[in-house]
Design a protein around this nucleic acid. Structure first.
Lengths: 300, 300
DNA sequence: TTGCTGTATTTTATAAATAAAAAACAGTTG
DNA sequence: CAACTGTTTTTTATTTATAAAATACAGCAA
């Protein structure tokens, strides 16, 4: 099972090179130098050379000194079958791990082993380890040396602290947004978003699961208007925790989202009317609802 | 050079066990069961067994079935020499890496290799890798697959965003502190801290490098009064970045700290007088000074 | 010079092997 | 049956080996 040690970068380069040739060259044309190709496709020259060598073997081009002359157009046979190539390790682990969580196989307090994860997700322990270290910044898992990883229990203090920061950040974003000049493009975008919310609220019966997208969009807009990498990173945590807990309790999802859309509408509406105080109150109410509903779900 | 693969946990347990015996037992006493010992010293029973076996070899105790009888008191010869045991890998890497940074060997924009770091710090690439991943949450390093790590360049936007959050958090901490009941112990602690600042300000000529400790203490106090893990983590970043940049420019350190102490005094003083507005203004001023001085140093 | 090729060296990613430690299992005894 | 011991199985930590890719070096030609 040496699949993962295969020369991915090489194969991918060959494929892009073939495509590139088909699109931009014809027989008898000559290709740019190694260095140019390496820069163009963001790989090292070593890889370019190997790929060119390979194309020579395929009788697609001939190389003599500095010139690479195209002698035949590539066809579909020449491409590497990339479909069977599994995704990047990191993605594999992540997907598998999140699936476990979403299916409730890993609940707060549970322990799990790196080795097991590696086997199940068809990756190496190293990949697993690196993912878990990265993931641990969400504050949902922890480990002691020589001992297994453990899902942290999710106590009320955690939720309170999380929402305390969220409150702080969103109020801050709000106050920044309000100060945007009248002719800023973001006001238009906010208006569009208001309409999107309005539309969704009309067909809430069927499309209630479309809300998270809008929620994401609203946050994205506020972030673009006044970017801050720390706020952004924090929001990753928020939205993960959010998913983490709602994934296995969809019971009240429609009601939850219906309410949330209404609160968003209220909030955005007040903003559009430049009613800062009103918007702040609406936001406050929204955050409180969200916090409470998270608690209700998580602390059963 | 198999040093690092040695049985650290085992040796440490033997030593603590010997100490424990000297302190609490005498010849002919019998020791508790494996399980009890394992729990008491937070190791697995496997390790306890190996340690007990080892003590038997040393003729310190005899085991027959369930009873472990002490037959001789341990002496200093029996202890493992723990001094030659290098610290935990993680610490080693961390120290070496931070030293590099502090000596200006790694400046923004520089690249460095895991292998090199592993060699220099006398650890494995795995340990290095794990440290770097963990460290990357500070946002000071980054890497692309198959490529080396790189010190991020430290632009003005980063400082602005950092201080934007700091501003938000510290104002929040302030407003929380002000709301503490009159008889809260924290007011007393704040008062003590005020006096400490006052004392330091008198001998600033010589003890100016004592300021960071007080700064840390002030933050610690605010955090204890109203704990929030996210704020805390963020402050780690702040203080790291702070060190990262001042370490190689101590030129104006005394003036910087003298000013900072004055600003702290102003700030704490206003708090003690319950002058919320005044304290907020003082804090604002302090943060601006800090930000500006960081920029002056970092953006040379 | 500059920009290229060919070759050699380094480094990262990955696998496989193994020691140390933890955890699970199976009896035994009071 | 509860608590223990002796034994076996798993798991983590660490090292070593190697393929893939990136980088550095040396020399050549315009």
């Amino acid at each position: 099972m040496l699949v993962s040690r295969k020369n991915f970068v090489f194969q991918k380069l060959v494929n892009t090179l073939l495509e590139h040739i088909i699109k931009n060259y014809k027989v008898d044309d000559s290709l740019p130098s190694d260095v140019v190709l390496a820069n163009q496709f963001s790989v090292s020259r070593t890889t370019v050379r190997k790929a060119v060598e390979y194309l020579e073997e395929l009788d697609i081009l001939v190389k003599s000194g500095a010139t690479k002359t195209l002698i035949a157009m590539p066809n579909s046979e020449h491409f590497f079958d990339v479909s069977k190539q599994s995704k990047p390790k990191e993605k594999l682990v992540e997907e598998y791990f999140l699936t476990l969580i979403q299916h409730g196989k890993l609940k707060p307090g549970d322990k799990f082993s790196e080795l097991e994860l590696a086997r199940q997700s068809d990756t190496s322990t190293v990949a697993v380890r690196e993912f878990l270290i990265r993931f641990s910044r969400f504050g949902l898992i922890e480990k002691n040396p020589r001992s297994q990883w453990k899902m942290k229990k999710f106590d009320e203090a955690f939720v309170d602290q999380l929402y305390e920061i969220r409150h702080l950040f969103e109020m801050h974003s709000l106050s920044n947004f309000i100060q945007l000049p009248e002719d800023s493009e973001y006001w238009q975008q906010l208006n569009d978003l208001f309409i999107e919310h309005k539309n969704l609220s009309l067909k809430m019966e069927t499309c209630y699961d479309d809300f998270p997208r809008l929620d994401q969009k609203l946050h994205g807009l506020l972030q673009r208007a006044h970017p801050n990498q720390f706020v952004n990173e924090f929001y990753d945590i928020i939205s993960f925790v959010f998913h983490y807990h709602y994934q296995w309790d969809r019971s009240a999802e429609r009601e939850r989202n219906t309410l949330a859309v209404q609160e968003h509408l209220d909030f955005i509406g007040k903003m559009l009317m430049k009613d800062y105080r009103g918007a702040a109150v609406a936001l406050e109410r929204h955050l409180n609802t969200a916090k409470q509903s998270l608690k209700d779900t998580a602390m059963l």
